[in-house]
Protein backbone atom coordinates (compact mmCIF):
# COMPACT_ATOMS: atom_id res chain seq x y z
CA UNK A 1 0.00 0.00 0.00
CA UNK A 2 1.40 3.37 -0.97
CA UNK A 3 1.80 6.12 1.57
CA UNK A 4 -1.03 8.61 1.48
CA UNK A 5 -0.22 11.90 -0.18
CA UNK A 6 -2.62 13.81 2.02
CA UNK A 7 -3.77 12.39 5.30
CA UNK A 8 -6.42 14.34 7.13
CA UNK A 9 -6.65 13.08 10.69
CA UNK A 10 -9.49 13.87 13.11
CA UNK A 11 -9.84 17.49 12.06
CA UNK A 12 -12.14 19.57 14.23
CA UNK A 13 -13.01 23.07 13.01
CA UNK A 14 -15.08 25.67 14.77
CA UNK A 15 -16.54 28.98 13.72
CA UNK A 16 -17.23 31.87 16.03
CA UNK A 17 -20.75 33.11 15.48
CA UNK A 18 -22.87 35.53 17.39
CA UNK A 19 -23.94 33.79 20.53
CA UNK A 20 -21.35 31.03 20.52
CA UNK A 21 -19.31 28.61 18.53
CA UNK A 22 -20.38 26.28 15.75
CA UNK A 23 -18.49 23.08 15.20
CA UNK A 24 -18.61 22.79 11.42
CA UNK A 25 -16.24 19.85 11.16
CA UNK A 26 -16.19 17.30 13.92
CA UNK A 27 -13.39 14.77 13.74
CA UNK A 28 -13.06 14.14 10.02
CA UNK A 29 -10.35 11.84 8.69
CA UNK A 30 -9.57 10.94 5.12
CA UNK A 31 -6.59 9.80 3.07
CA UNK A 32 -5.70 10.50 -0.52
CA UNK A 33 -3.07 8.41 -2.24
CA UNK A 34 -0.96 9.62 -5.17
CA UNK A 35 -2.87 9.70 -8.43
CA UNK A 36 -6.19 8.71 -6.95
CA UNK A 37 -9.51 10.51 -7.33
CA UNK A 38 -11.49 10.94 -4.15
CA UNK A 39 -14.97 12.39 -4.08
CA UNK A 40 -16.23 14.20 -1.01
CA UNK A 41 -20.00 14.47 -1.18
CA UNK A 42 -22.46 16.12 1.12
CA UNK A 43 -25.15 18.76 1.28
CA UNK A 44 -24.69 22.36 2.34
CA UNK A 45 -23.54 22.48 5.93
CA UNK A 46 -22.08 18.97 5.84
CA UNK A 47 -18.58 20.39 6.31
CA UNK A 48 -17.11 19.04 3.08
CA UNK A 49 -15.57 22.31 1.96
CA UNK A 50 -14.64 23.43 5.44
CA UNK A 51 -12.64 20.23 5.93
CA UNK A 52 -10.47 21.02 2.92
CA UNK A 53 -10.16 24.70 3.76
CA UNK A 54 -9.07 23.69 7.26
CA UNK A 55 -6.37 21.46 5.86
CA UNK A 56 -5.11 24.18 3.53
CA UNK A 57 -5.16 27.03 6.03
CA UNK A 58 -7.79 28.87 4.01
CA UNK A 59 -10.45 29.31 6.70
CA UNK A 60 -12.09 32.71 6.98
CA UNK A 61 -11.15 34.82 10.02
CA UNK A 62 -13.82 33.52 12.33
CA UNK A 63 -12.90 29.87 11.73
CA UNK A 64 -10.28 27.88 13.58
CA UNK A 65 -8.94 24.35 13.50
CA UNK A 66 -9.17 23.29 17.14
CA UNK A 67 -7.82 19.76 16.81
CA UNK A 68 -6.42 17.29 14.33
CA UNK A 69 -3.78 17.14 11.66
CA UNK A 70 -3.53 17.32 7.90
CA UNK A 71 -0.31 15.73 6.77
CA UNK A 72 0.77 16.41 3.22
CA UNK A 73 3.76 14.25 2.25
CA UNK A 74 4.30 13.66 5.93
CA UNK A 75 4.27 17.34 6.88
CA UNK A 76 1.49 18.67 9.10
CA UNK A 77 -0.22 21.61 7.40
CA UNK A 78 -2.20 22.51 10.50
CA UNK A 79 -0.34 25.23 12.35
CA UNK A 80 2.13 25.73 9.54
CA UNK A 81 3.20 29.33 8.96
CA UNK A 82 1.32 31.14 6.20
CA UNK A 83 4.53 31.55 4.18
CA UNK A 84 5.12 27.82 4.20
CA UNK A 85 1.50 27.14 3.30
CA UNK A 86 1.71 29.52 0.37
CA UNK A 87 4.72 27.61 -0.87
CA UNK A 88 2.71 24.40 -0.87
CA UNK A 89 -0.57 25.79 -2.21
CA UNK A 90 -0.21 26.62 -5.85
CA UNK A 91 2.89 24.50 -6.28
CA UNK A 92 2.32 21.08 -4.76
CA UNK A 93 -1.43 21.48 -4.31
CA UNK A 94 -3.50 23.12 -7.02
CA UNK A 95 -6.88 24.60 -6.21
CA UNK A 96 -10.02 24.96 -8.30
CA UNK A 97 -12.91 26.83 -6.74
CA UNK A 98 -16.60 27.03 -7.50
CA UNK A 99 -16.48 30.69 -8.41
CA UNK A 100 -13.35 31.53 -10.38
CA UNK A 101 -14.37 35.18 -10.43
CA UNK A 102 -13.45 35.52 -6.77
CA UNK A 103 -10.24 33.53 -7.22
CA UNK A 104 -8.91 35.87 -9.89
CA UNK A 105 -7.77 39.40 -9.28
CA UNK A 106 -10.13 41.52 -11.39
CA UNK A 107 -7.55 44.19 -12.25
CA UNK A 108 -4.84 41.85 -13.56
CA UNK A 109 -4.97 40.02 -16.86
CA UNK A 110 -5.48 36.29 -16.69
CA UNK A 111 -2.07 35.72 -18.27
CA UNK A 112 -0.29 37.90 -15.71
CA UNK A 113 -1.89 36.01 -12.85
CA UNK A 114 -0.96 32.59 -14.14
CA UNK A 115 2.57 33.83 -14.93
CA UNK A 116 2.88 35.23 -11.44
CA UNK A 117 1.98 31.84 -10.00
CA UNK A 118 4.59 30.20 -12.20
CA UNK A 119 7.36 32.63 -11.32
CA UNK A 120 6.60 32.60 -7.61
CA UNK A 121 7.22 28.89 -7.45
CA UNK A 122 9.87 28.48 -10.10
CA UNK A 123 12.88 30.57 -9.30
CA UNK A 124 14.84 31.66 -12.35
CA UNK A 125 11.94 31.42 -14.77
CA UNK A 126 12.19 34.46 -17.02
CA UNK A 127 9.23 36.68 -17.70
CA UNK A 128 9.33 35.72 -21.35
CA UNK A 129 9.47 32.00 -20.62
CA UNK A 130 6.62 32.33 -18.14
CA UNK A 131 4.54 34.17 -20.73
CA UNK A 132 5.14 31.42 -23.28
CA UNK A 133 4.24 28.77 -20.71
CA UNK A 134 0.99 30.60 -19.92
CA UNK A 135 -0.08 30.50 -23.54
CA UNK A 136 0.79 26.80 -23.64
CA UNK A 137 -1.24 26.15 -20.51
CA UNK A 138 -4.27 28.05 -21.78
CA UNK A 139 -4.10 26.07 -24.99
CA UNK A 140 -3.86 22.83 -23.01
CA UNK A 141 -7.08 23.58 -21.17
CA UNK A 142 -8.82 24.25 -24.45
CA UNK A 143 -9.02 28.01 -24.50
CA UNK A 144 -9.15 29.18 -28.11
CA UNK A 145 -6.82 32.01 -29.19
CA UNK A 146 -4.69 31.66 -26.05
CA UNK A 147 -2.29 34.50 -26.93
CA UNK A 148 -5.16 36.96 -27.09
CA UNK A 149 -6.96 35.47 -24.10
CA UNK A 150 -3.87 35.73 -21.90
CA UNK A 151 -4.02 39.51 -22.31
CA UNK A 152 -7.68 39.73 -21.26
CA UNK A 153 -9.14 40.40 -17.84
CA UNK A 154 -11.17 37.81 -15.93
CA UNK A 155 -14.48 39.61 -16.55
CA UNK A 156 -13.97 39.24 -20.29
CA UNK A 157 -14.13 35.45 -19.89
CA UNK A 158 -17.35 33.46 -19.80
CA UNK A 159 -17.97 31.26 -16.73
CA UNK A 160 -16.75 28.14 -18.48
CA UNK A 161 -13.66 29.87 -19.84
CA UNK A 162 -12.83 31.28 -16.43
CA UNK A 163 -13.06 27.82 -14.95
CA UNK A 164 -10.69 26.55 -17.65
CA UNK A 165 -8.26 29.34 -16.82
CA UNK A 166 -8.56 28.43 -13.15
CA UNK A 167 -7.67 24.85 -14.00
CA UNK A 168 -4.71 26.09 -16.05
CA UNK A 169 -3.57 28.04 -13.00
CA UNK A 170 -4.07 25.03 -10.71
CA UNK A 171 -2.01 22.74 -12.95
CA UNK A 172 0.64 25.33 -13.84
CA UNK A 173 3.25 24.02 -11.43
CA UNK A 174 2.48 20.32 -11.95
CA UNK A 175 0.99 19.79 -8.50
CA UNK A 176 0.79 16.35 -6.91
CA UNK A 177 -2.74 17.06 -5.72
CA UNK A 178 -5.59 19.09 -7.20
CA UNK A 179 -8.47 20.02 -4.92
CA UNK A 180 -11.60 21.01 -6.80
CA UNK A 181 -14.35 22.52 -4.64
CA UNK A 182 -17.69 22.38 -6.47
CA UNK A 183 -15.86 23.18 -9.72
CA UNK A 184 -18.94 22.85 -11.92
CA UNK A 185 -21.79 23.89 -9.63
CA UNK A 186 -22.08 27.37 -11.12
CA UNK A 187 -21.92 26.06 -14.68
CA UNK A 188 -24.50 24.87 -17.13
CA UNK A 189 -24.69 21.18 -17.82
CA UNK A 190 -23.03 21.24 -21.27
CA UNK A 191 -20.22 23.41 -19.89
CA UNK A 192 -20.03 21.14 -16.84
CA UNK A 193 -19.45 18.21 -19.17
CA UNK A 194 -16.59 20.09 -20.83
CA UNK A 195 -14.98 20.97 -17.50
CA UNK A 196 -15.34 17.45 -16.06
CA UNK A 197 -13.82 16.08 -19.22
CA UNK A 198 -10.96 18.56 -18.94
CA UNK A 199 -10.34 17.78 -15.26
CA UNK A 200 -10.21 14.09 -16.04
CA UNK A 201 -7.76 14.68 -18.86
CA UNK A 202 -5.57 17.01 -16.82
CA UNK A 203 -5.44 14.48 -14.04
CA UNK A 204 -4.46 11.71 -16.40
CA UNK A 205 -1.73 13.76 -17.99
CA UNK A 206 -0.25 15.16 -14.80
CA UNK A 207 -0.89 12.02 -12.74
CA UNK A 208 -2.01 14.26 -9.91
CA UNK A 209 -4.37 13.07 -7.23
CA UNK A 210 -7.76 14.79 -7.33
CA UNK A 211 -10.15 15.60 -4.52
CA UNK A 212 -13.54 16.42 -5.94
CA UNK A 213 -15.81 18.18 -3.47
CA UNK A 214 -19.40 18.29 -4.68
CA UNK A 215 -23.03 17.88 -3.74
CA UNK A 216 -23.75 16.24 -7.09
CA UNK A 217 -23.85 12.46 -6.95
CA UNK A 218 -23.79 12.32 -10.73
CA UNK A 219 -20.42 14.06 -10.79
CA UNK A 220 -19.19 11.68 -8.09
CA UNK A 221 -20.29 8.66 -10.10
CA UNK A 222 -18.70 9.95 -13.30
CA UNK A 223 -15.39 11.11 -11.90
CA UNK A 224 -14.21 9.41 -8.73
CA UNK A 225 -12.73 6.15 -7.53
CA UNK A 226 -13.32 6.48 -3.84
CA UNK A 227 -16.07 8.39 -2.08
CA UNK A 228 -16.38 10.04 1.32
CA UNK A 229 -19.97 10.86 2.30
CA UNK A 230 -20.34 13.63 4.85
CA UNK A 231 -23.29 14.67 6.99
CA UNK A 232 -23.44 17.31 9.72
CA UNK A 233 -19.69 17.76 10.02
CA UNK A 234 -18.76 14.08 10.06
CA UNK A 235 -17.90 11.32 7.66
CA UNK A 236 -20.81 8.88 7.66
CA UNK A 237 -19.59 6.48 5.02
CA UNK A 238 -16.56 5.84 2.89
CA UNK A 239 -15.93 3.20 0.23
CA UNK A 240 -15.02 2.76 -3.40
CA UNK A 241 -17.43 4.40 -5.77
CA UNK A 242 -19.18 1.22 -6.90
CA UNK A 243 -19.82 0.12 -3.33
CA UNK A 244 -21.21 3.52 -2.35
CA UNK A 245 -23.66 3.50 -5.24
CA UNK A 246 -24.67 -0.14 -5.05
CA UNK A 247 -23.99 -1.48 -1.56
CA UNK A 248 -24.10 1.57 0.67
CA UNK A 249 -24.22 0.72 4.35
CA UNK A 250 -25.40 4.02 5.72
CA UNK A 251 -29.08 4.96 5.61
CA UNK A 252 -28.23 8.56 4.64
CA UNK A 253 -26.25 7.47 1.59
CA UNK A 254 -29.05 5.12 0.62
CA UNK A 255 -31.70 7.76 1.17
CA UNK A 256 -29.84 10.33 -0.86
CA UNK A 257 -29.33 7.98 -3.80
CA UNK A 258 -32.91 6.84 -3.81
CA UNK A 259 -34.30 10.35 -3.66
CA UNK A 260 -32.56 11.42 -6.86
CA UNK A 261 -34.80 11.83 -9.87
CA UNK A 262 -33.28 9.93 -12.79
CA UNK A 263 -33.14 10.56 -16.50
CA UNK A 264 -33.16 6.87 -17.33
CA UNK A 265 -36.29 5.85 -15.50
CA UNK A 266 -39.39 7.42 -14.03
CA UNK A 267 -40.99 6.53 -10.75
CA UNK A 268 -44.42 7.58 -9.53
CA UNK A 269 -43.09 9.25 -6.41
CA UNK A 270 -39.54 10.02 -5.37
CA UNK A 271 -38.61 8.28 -2.13
CA UNK A 272 -37.60 11.48 -0.37
CA UNK A 273 -35.64 11.75 2.85
CA UNK A 274 -37.97 13.26 5.41
CA UNK A 275 -37.29 16.16 7.72
CA UNK A 276 -34.82 18.97 7.42
CA UNK A 277 -31.04 19.11 7.20
CA UNK A 278 -29.57 19.46 10.68
CA UNK A 279 -28.88 22.85 12.18
CA UNK A 280 -25.15 22.82 12.97
CA UNK A 281 -25.81 25.04 15.98
CA UNK A 282 -28.21 22.52 17.49
CA UNK A 283 -27.22 19.02 16.46
CA UNK A 284 -29.19 16.24 18.07
CA UNK A 285 -27.22 14.21 20.60
CA UNK A 286 -25.97 10.83 19.41
CA UNK A 287 -26.25 10.09 15.72
CA UNK A 288 -26.88 13.33 13.82
CA UNK A 289 -28.97 11.55 11.21
CA UNK A 290 -31.23 9.98 13.84
CA UNK A 291 -34.23 12.35 13.44
CA UNK A 292 -34.49 11.53 9.73
CA UNK A 293 -33.39 7.90 9.85
CA UNK A 294 -35.71 5.00 9.03
CA UNK A 295 -33.48 2.62 11.02
CA UNK A 296 -33.76 4.64 14.19
CA UNK A 297 -37.24 3.56 15.32
CA UNK A 298 -36.50 4.83 18.79
CA UNK A 299 -33.60 2.45 19.38
CA UNK A 300 -31.35 3.41 22.28
CA UNK A 301 -28.13 2.80 20.35
CA UNK A 302 -28.88 5.78 18.14
CA UNK A 303 -28.57 8.05 21.15
CA UNK A 304 -24.84 7.40 21.24
CA UNK A 305 -22.59 8.60 18.49
CA UNK A 306 -21.71 5.79 16.08
CA UNK A 307 -18.04 5.32 15.22
CA UNK A 308 -16.92 4.95 11.62
CA UNK A 309 -16.73 1.16 11.73
CA UNK A 310 -15.52 -1.27 9.07
CA UNK A 311 -18.35 -2.60 6.94
CA UNK A 312 -16.35 -4.45 4.34
CA UNK A 313 -13.12 -4.20 2.40
CA UNK A 314 -12.14 -0.54 2.36
CA UNK A 315 -15.66 0.25 3.44
CA UNK A 316 -16.63 2.08 6.62
CA UNK A 317 -19.99 3.21 7.89
CA UNK A 318 -20.97 5.35 10.86
CA UNK A 319 -24.22 3.55 11.56
CA UNK A 320 -24.87 1.24 14.52
CA UNK A 321 -27.03 -0.91 12.30
CA UNK A 322 -25.06 -0.94 9.08
CA UNK A 323 -25.14 -4.73 9.11
CA UNK A 324 -28.91 -4.58 8.59
CA UNK A 325 -28.28 -2.95 5.24
CA UNK A 326 -25.99 -5.71 4.01
CA UNK A 327 -27.38 -7.48 0.99
CA UNK A 328 -30.35 -5.13 0.77
CA UNK A 329 -30.64 -3.34 -2.52
CA UNK A 330 -32.37 -0.02 -2.82
CA UNK A 331 -33.46 1.85 0.21
CA UNK A 332 -34.84 1.16 3.61
CA UNK A 333 -38.40 1.87 4.51
Amino acid sequence: MTEPLLSIDEIVTEFRVEGGVVRAVNGVSLDVRPGETVGVVGESGSGKSVTMMSALGLLPGHGRVVAGHARFRGRDLVGLAERELERIRGREIGLVFQDPMTAFNPVMTVGEQIAEGLRRHQAGLSRRAAGARVVELLAEVGIPAPERRARQYPHEFSGGMRQRAMIAMAMANRPALIIADEPTTALDVTIQAQILDLLGRVQQETEAALIMITHDLGVIAEMTERVVVMYAGRVVETADVDTVFHEARHPYTRGLLRSLPRLDHRVAELPAIGGQPPNPQALPPGCSYRPRCPLNQGRDECLTRPELNPAGRGHRSACHFHAELAGLTGGVE
Partner: peptide, 20 residues
Protein backbone atom coordinates in the same frame (compact mmCIF):
# COMPACT_ATOMS: atom_id res chain seq x y z
CA UNK B 1 -29.16 14.99 -22.37
CA UNK B 2 -25.81 13.31 -22.84
CA UNK B 3 -24.11 15.91 -20.65
CA UNK B 4 -26.13 15.07 -17.54
CA UNK B 5 -23.93 13.00 -15.24
CA UNK B 6 -25.52 9.65 -14.43
CA UNK B 7 -25.49 8.80 -10.74
CA UNK B 8 -24.31 5.27 -11.30
CA UNK B 9 -20.63 4.44 -11.77
CA UNK B 10 -21.54 1.23 -13.64
CA UNK B 11 -23.06 3.34 -16.41
CA UNK B 12 -19.97 5.52 -16.67
CA UNK B 13 -19.19 6.02 -20.34
CA UNK B 14 -17.23 9.06 -21.45
CA UNK B 15 -17.97 8.20 -25.07
CA UNK B 16 -21.67 8.72 -24.40
CA UNK B 17 -21.10 12.42 -23.84
CA UNK B 18 -21.53 14.67 -26.82
CA UNK B 19 -19.21 17.48 -25.87
CA UNK B 20 -20.16 20.81 -27.32
Amino acid sequence: LSAVPVPDPRLRDPARRRLL
